[in-house]
């Protein structure tokens, strides 16, 4: 069996809001996949359906070979779900939390103790094992939360926004935890609104927007789709910005009126950039500066969803792949 997750035509509405509008998703066993999308795209709903917490209105899905509606018990024994909010008791210590989860996963008292100690060690929490979780830092809680999901040796692990709200250092630690998890052979489906995260961790990325998968592929394939590169233009003034924007029309990946900046997809060759500038600005007055970048996941995201990537608005993740090319005065 080489698909761990196989969903076809999932739909789900809450009241009049159609949160999922026919989603297909296939995840290969042992791979890491990312569901990438802005807030409200339906990522959490998708994960809740796959984790049997909420039934789809239509469509069907199998996880670890079990149907999420008709074989919930089988799915539940095969998965773990780590949600956006740490699902732990603040008033219990890290070790107590893990032992409790291990018992619920079917282990005996001794087995639970052994399993808890193993996981605390593996997630670098052995020192804090006896402390109440209420005293843990955000990063420690997330690690314990993931550890708690692994007590029952799941073959499929769902991570719903595993790094949202973490500081940069905790996020880095979390990334290495997830990479290591992937190396241990389990199938991971993570949701994220951070492009950099999907790029770093996932073998394949599905972009979810407005309840539909708008693109799917490896990070490299997705970047290819926007031409492999991006030119950032800075207009010489507001009027010039307006003229350039009008000339580009829908080709503009991104427009920033405050800084008079515009981004356009390109293959990155000198010939194409020269042609673009010639066509946009034959008199050499509108474009003040330009810079060529490799395409980042942000560009993919913007060109696919027409929305703004989270990393642009909250400044938590910097643009990736931004190996700034030549900067030239024209």
């Amino acid at each position: 069996m080489d698909t761990a997750i196989d969903a076809v035509g999932l739909t789900k509405s809450y009241g009049a809001v159609r949160v999922l509008d026919g989603v297909d998703l296939a995840v290969r066993t042992g791979s890491v996949s990312a569901l990438l999308g802005p807030n409200g795209a339906g990522k959490t709903t998708m994960v809740r359906i796959l984790a049997t917490l909420s039934p789809p209105d239509s469509g069907r899905a199998k996880v670890a070979g079990y149907d999420v509606e008709r074989e919930r018990g089988g799915v539940r024994r095969s998965i773990s779900l780590t949600g956006q909010y740490a699902a732990l008791d603040d008033l219990q210590s890290g070790a107590e939390n893990l032992r409790m989860m291990a018992k619920l996963a079917g282990l005996g008292s001794r087995g639970a103790r052994v399993r808890a100690a193993e996981l605390l060690d593996r997630f670098d929490l052995a020192e804090a094992a006896g402390r109440r979780v209420g005293t843990y830092s955000g990063g420690m809680r997330r690690r314990l939360d993931i550890a708690a999901g692994l007590v029952g040796d799941p073959s499929v692990v769902f991570l719903d926004e595993p790094t949202t709200g973490l500081d940069v250092r905790s996020r880095q630690t979390m990334w290495s935890v997830i990479s290591e998890l992937a190396r241990s052979g389990v199938t991971v489906l993570l949701t994220t609104q951070y492009l950099e995260e999907a790029d770093r961790l996932a073998d394949r990325v599905a972009v979810l927007d407005g309840g539909r998968i708008v693109a799917e592929g490896t990070p490299a394939e997705l970047k290819q789709r926007v031409g492999g590169g991006r030119v950032d233009l800075t207009a010489s003034g507001p009027a010039a910005f307006g003229r350039l924007r009008a000339a580009l029309g829908p080709r503009a990946l991104h427009a920033d009126p405050a800084e008079h900046g515009l981004s356009v997809a390109t293959d990155g060759t000198a010939a194409e950039v020269r042609r673009l500038l010639q066509q946009l600005d034959p008199e050499c007055v509108l474009v003040e500066r330009f810079a060529v970048h490799e395409a980042s996941m942000d560009d993919v995201f913007i060109s696919l969803t027409g929305g703004t990537a989270a990393s642009d608005t909250d400044g938590l993740a910097s643009r990736t792949g931004g190996t700034g090319g030549e900067v030239a005065r024209v």
């Binding site: 809740r48 049997t52 779900l81 780590t82 949600g83 699902a87 008791d89």
Partner: peptide, 9 residues
């Protein structure tokens, strides 16, 4: 979130 974890278990 803990109720979701319990249910998913």
């Amino acid at each position: 979130g803990i109720v979701d974890r319990f249910r998913s278990m």
